[in-house]
Design a protein around this nucleic acid. Sequence first.
DNA 1: AACGCCCCTTGACCTGGGTCATGGCCGTGC
DNA 2: GCACGGCCATGACCCAGGTCAAGGGGCGTT
Lengths: 237, 237
Amino acid sequence: MTPERALALLRHAPIFQGAQEADLSPLAERGHFLGLMRGQHLFQAGQPVEALYVVASGSVRVYRLARGGRRELTLHVEGPRQLVAGIAAFQSRAVYPAHAQALQSPTEVLALPVEAVRQAVFNTPTLAQAVIAYFARRQAELLGRLDSLVFSELGERLAAYLLEHAAETPHALPTNSELAALLGTVPEIISRKLGEFYRLGLIVLERRTVRVCDVAELARLAGHTVTAGDAAREAGR
Amino acid sequence: MTPERALALLRHAPIFQGAQEADLSPLAERGHFLGLMRGQHLFQAGQPVEALYVVASGSVRVYRLARGGRRELTLHVEGPRQLVAGIAAFQSRAVYPAHAQALQSPTEVLALPVEAVRQAVFNTPTLAQAVIAYFARRQAELLGRLDSLVFSELGERLAAYLLEHAAETPHALPTNSELAALLGTVPEIISRKLGEFYRLGLIVLERRTVRVCDVAELARLAGHTVTAGDAAREAGR
DNA sequence: AACGCCCCTTGACCTGGGTCATGGCCGTGC
DNA sequence: GCACGGCCATGACCCAGGTCAAGGGGCGTT
């Protein structure tokens, strides 16, 4: 039973698009499913890499911790069919470069032993090609993340986040701590900024959801190098 | 003549380690050398990707520009045998994600057309494997960069830089603007921090070179979450 | 119902570091 | 020689955002 389910999952995972079913089935046979509760860790940064994971249900957050553990930065959140530790699996002296934990209960993942993955990928040119394309995409995302964190202020990042995740408003919002980890700050500041956006009439908050009111203005905040202070000044004249 | 030189270069490039000479020579034949003066651009961010470059001599700086161009962040500096745009070359709708410019005059690079590269890599499992390993390494570096920029203060980053690049002291230092771009800040702040380090007796500056005096203390600054203020306080008691 | 826990909100305060402007130094070219 | 341009240094000022602490609400558990 497990192999069929595993195979179905792999077949639909974006990273394996373009692969032959015949190439995937040996991999599927080596995999096994794991169930996780909210908050439970899939692995910790620094542990040797044993497996690569494909999310089957729920979601997994991958994050780095500052020295001392006072702050954390969420690198990405992966939902069904997405990979966790996909890149780490191909490093030679491989230890996980980040922590991974389930965000929901229950979360189910398919664990694929790294040797099995490497073997499958290195023996299957189409797979190798898919993996290379996947890596390139991830790298581009990471670069975007990097300079948004370095170049833009919190207001811009928050505005961008709201626009991106609130296609259908109202939309459930993560907790302030989760948002803070995502945007590289602390919960208090998120609280203030959201309050500020509300006062500017950009959003409405109600019971853990946001409704975006002024898409155009949010986009301006997100896109240009414009601080909320500027916006207030402009609104006031 | 060019093909031999190109082949020799490819053979020694770390990314192609483990590849057969036979697999590299068709690639070498498609390449051509370019000469650049200091400051001249190899490409600009946003241009469609035409080629991947291997540095033959001199060095190339790859950097991103903030919107508005007021600030820039150097992603990496590549010397001989290193790749520029190695990852961009494998993205599907590929535009360069960053700018690349020569740091020295003269700088010489080997340009390899992307189709030639893709073809060679996708047809040669050992090459594909090497490329995957290379990507994984780069990704790990980028992650390290990311959280040093997000989590640590400037003093830590500067201390880390000095330690890393001053194995043999005294060592030539880049200009303050170059350092600033590397560490994610502006030249004035570099000037102040270096002055502070000097006053603390950690380094000596003379005519564009640094000599590191107190390795242990610098390492403490770089490694722990310790501000220069703490150091001064401790030194003073 | 009452307790405890977690999260949110807000205020007060602090500080790293960005901005702007001035002046000095050095190297290069005329 | 002198003038110009780039780099560096430094002072004055400012502000986004981090820190710490206090208080309040929602909700699940006993």
